[in-house]
Simulated scan of single mutants.
Amino acid sequence: MEKTIGMRIRECRVKMGMTQEELAEQICCKKSLISQYENDKVDIKGSVIVELASLLGTSAGYLLNGELGCTLDENEKEMILLMKMAKSPTIKKVALEQMKILVNLS
């Protein structure tokens, strides 16, 4: 079974060590609304998804459709940013191959 948006929100919230109440305080809403989000009972506005992603240390893409992983560390975020900044598909391919080599060395 594929994870829903609500499941991914809950997963990230728990990984961050936050309660529903704490998350609700951060986005100025009631705990019951966070519960409804996590149980896929209500649709979530795009702006709220972006805010949740920021607070939960992930991306809106992850919350929406599972892109990448939850709670990226600073180095992982920087690597993704650098890959996005690279304009040439050749440079991206070389960087990816180099990363694969480095991973296999450790």
Results as ranks from 00 to 15, higher is better:
S59R: 08
M7H: 09
Y37Q: 03
N65S: 11
Y37V: 02
E51Y: 02
Y37C: 05
S47C: 05
K41E: 14
V14D: 04
E38F: 05
V42S: 04
R8M: 05
V50Y: 11
S88M: 03
L68E: 14
E78A: 15
L55P: 02
S88A: 03
K92D: 04
G57C: 01
K31C: 09
D43I: 06
S35N: 11
D40V: 07
T58E: 02
R8S: 02
S59W: 09
T19D: 04
L63W: 07
V48N: 06
G57N: 09
L102D: 11
T71N: 14
T71L: 14
L105Y: 10
G66C: 05
E38W: 04
K87A: 14
N39S: 13
I27E: 02
K15L: 12
V48T: 15
S106Y: 08
T90K: 12
M18Q: 06
T90V: 14
K87T: 14
I91R: 13
Y62P: 01
V50G: 02
L102Y: 11
E22D: 05
K41V: 09
G61H: 06
T58I: 01
G61W: 04
E21S: 10
K45T: 02
L52C: 01
K93C: 07
K41C: 07
V42Q: 04
E76W: 04
S32T: 15
E78Y: 10
Q98K: 13
L55R: 10
A60I: 04
A53F: 10
K31R: 15
K77Y: 13
S88H: 01
V94Q: 10
G57I: 01
D73I: 07
A24N: 02
C70Q: 04
G6S: 09
D43A: 10
L64C: 10
E38D: 06
E22M: 07
L82Q: 13
T71D: 10
K3Q: 13
L102T: 09
K3R: 11
I44R: 03
E67Q: 15
N65V: 12
N39C: 12
G17K: 03
L68Y: 15
E78L: 15
L82K: 12
S88E: 06
D40Q: 05
Q98Y: 10
A53K: 05
Y37E: 05
N75K: 10
L23R: 00
R10A: 12
S54E: 15
C28I: 07
I101S: 05
G57R: 04
C29H: 03
K93F: 07
S47N: 09
L96S: 13
G17E: 06
G61A: 10
E78M: 14
K92I: 08
P89N: 12
E11I: 00
E78S: 08
K45Q: 14
Q98W: 09
I101A: 09
P89F: 07
E2R: 11
V94I: 15
E97S: 11
E97L: 11
L56I: 01
E78N: 10
